[in-house]
Amino acid sequence: MIKVVAVLNAKPGISREEFLHKWNVEHPILVRRLPGLRRYRQNPAIEHRKQWPFSGMAELWFDTVADVKVAYGGPEAAEVFAHEDEFLERMQWFLADEVEIDIRGENR
């Protein structure tokens, strides 16, 4: 399984509430339409006294790199990108394999 991992920054001047509404409520409606999408997770940064370098992180799972290419090459992705322009200043992303590490140190 291949994962798109994206870290993102909200547009300056947008309130946290507006950012979270656009990302957590409106955006999933569009993302769910991406062909081949297996799973989608959002990780909003928690409010903290420290200014975090990112507003959040998103993870999208696909079966193959080819499936990612199809998903992001179609009209559904154009709608996703147009919506992101409403609330995101910047997004950086990469493709990843997920490797789960046993925290107990036991061999599988």
Rank of each mutant, 00 (worst) to 15 (best):
M1P: 12
I2G: 02
V4E: 02
V4N: 01
V7Q: 00
V7W: 02
V7H: 00
A10Q: 06
P12F: 00
S15I: 04
R16G: 01
R16H: 04
E17G: 03
N24S: 13
V25A: 07
P28E: 06
I29M: 10
I29E: 13
I29V: 15
V31A: 09
P35F: 12
G36D: 10
G36C: 09
L37Y: 08
Y40R: 11
R41S: 13
R41E: 13
N43G: 09
P44I: 13
A45N: 12
A45P: 10
E47S: 14
H48E: 14
R49H: 15
R49C: 11
K50N: 14
P53D: 12
F54N: 08
F54K: 03
S55N: 14
E59C: 01
E59Y: 05
L60E: 08
W61A: 10
W61Q: 10
W61S: 06
F62D: 05
D63V: 12
T64R: 10
T64F: 07
A66G: 11
K69W: 04
K69A: 11
V70Y: 04
A71C: 06
Y72M: 14
Y72P: 00
G74I: 08
G74R: 06
G74T: 12
P75E: 11
E76T: 04
E76M: 02
E76L: 03
A77D: 11
A78Y: 00
E79M: 09
V80Q: 02
F81R: 10
E84K: 02
D85V: 03
E86R: 13
E89N: 06
R90H: 12
Q92R: 07
L95D: 03
A96C: 07
D97L: 09
E98P: 09
E100W: 09
D102T: 13
D102C: 12
D102S: 13
I103G: 09
R104L: 15
G105T: 15
G105W: 14
R108D: 13
R108V: 15
